[in-house]
């Protein structure tokens, strides 16, 4: 536990955010500076526990001397930087980014913050007309780069709607909700898991998160750590338990309690947040700011909770014979 920062002291830089002077340590981003000033800055592809990819462009700000707008999440503060976040130009870009996304992707399961920003910026998802109907399963996976497929009706707003991918018992992939923020790829890769089961494939609007040759997760390198679910901002990746309850109409976050505990499987000491509804664990997360996990878990912590609810008396198949004890 690094309760005290161990890094050497850093030089302080001056930055002006919307006319207010602030001092932030060297290496801080504009987003850090905005947060110290309580300037509410929308973000989608940014997460505290991942390397910024600055792909969504919703956090853009105006920086004096810069021809284009600048992503706050990744741009490091330079001494004397003058930043404006509340100009008409910034508002218009942020609004458009959210409108472009909302017109092509199902956003209704995004976080409450995202919904607040969409309301604040008066986002009109229907500006580009009614979305086109969902594509059949696998259609987007088969798209070839640079070879323009002619949509049935070129005047209708193209979207990413498609059937949910269900190929394992633990989690589902609903790419109708994917905003291509790259977070799951980062969590699967060097930012957390180093498994590299998924990557971005294809190009342009046809770009998508994919395994090699779009094979099912069971065939891929996936180890079911679920860290991609943990970072997904729009509910595209979801516990099967949550997906099934939502389908059945029984998912109710108001009725859920969250219990914090330590994962019992090994000695690392990962903190778990057990989301419980009707006395059943329906989802497991870990706090992103936890010093052990940074929000990331393994398959055991994430999905290995069934035993908690299994009652030996009720279920003879789960009863362990004494001779099996110690067998791994």
């Amino acid at each position: 536990m690094n309760a005290v920062p161990l890094e050497p002291p850093r030089r302080l830089l001056s930055i002006s955010v919307d006319g207010v002077e602030a001092r932030v340590p060297e290496g801080a981003t504009i987003l850090d500076a905005c947060r110290t000033q309580q300037v509410d800055t929308p973000t989608l592809c940014y997460a505290d526990n991942l390397t910024p990819v600055n792909a969504c462009r919703v956090c853009v700000v105006e920086v004096e001397g810069s021809r284009t707008l600048v992503p706050a999440c990744s741009r490091q503060v330079e001494d004397g930087m003058v930043v404006a976040t509340d100009t008409e130009r910034v508002r218009r870009s942020r609004t458009l980014v959210m409108e472009l996304l909302a017109s092509s992707v199902e956003m209704n399961l995004a976080s409450p913050d995202v919904h607040r920003w969409m309301a604040d910026y008066e986002v009109r998802a229907d500006r580009f007309g009614a979305p086109m109907p969902p594509l059949p399963a696998g259609a987007r996976d088969a798209r070839e780069p640079g070879h323009h497929h002619d949509p049935q009706d070129p005047t209708v707003a193209e979207g990413v709607a498609q059937p949910v991918k269900i190929d394992n018992e633990l989690y589902v992939r609903d790419y109708s909700r994917c905003i291509l923020c790259y977070k799951c790829v980062e969590a699967c890769g060097v930012d957390a898991q180093n498994t590299f089961a998924i990557a971005v494939a294809g190009r342009g609007f046809d770009a998508r998160i994919s395994t090699e040759y779009s094979v099912g997760l069971d065939e891929s390198a996936c180890v079911y750590c679920g860290n991609c679910i943990g970072v997904c901002p729009t509910g595209a990746l979801m516990f099967t338990s949550e997906h099934e309850m939502r389908e059945a109409g029984t998912w109710d976050e108001q009725e859920q309690t969250v219990t914090n505990t330590i994962c019992p499987y090994c000695g690392v000491g990962c903190e778990l947040e057990l989301h419980v509804q009707d006395n059943e664990i329906v989802k497991v997360t870990s706090p992103a700011d936890h010093s052990v996990t940074n929000g990331h878990l393994c398959i055991k912590g994430r999905f290995g909770f069934a035993y908690v609810q299994a009652r030996r008396d009720d279920d003879p198949t789960r009863r362990r014979k004494p001779t099996e004890r110690g067998a791994s």
Binding site: A55, C56, G129, P145, G146, T155, L180, R203, F205, D206
Partner: peptide, 28 residues
């Protein structure tokens, strides 16, 4: 418009979706 839609790398939202919406508006 089709050229930019086809050649956008797809990384950032303004270009990935913007080039598509531009082409659609022109068709309309």
């Amino acid at each position: 418009a089709r050229f930019f839609r086809d050649e956008s790398c797809g990384q950032c939202v303004p270009c990935r979706v913007g080039t598509v919406r531009q082409e659609e508006a022109l068709h309309r």
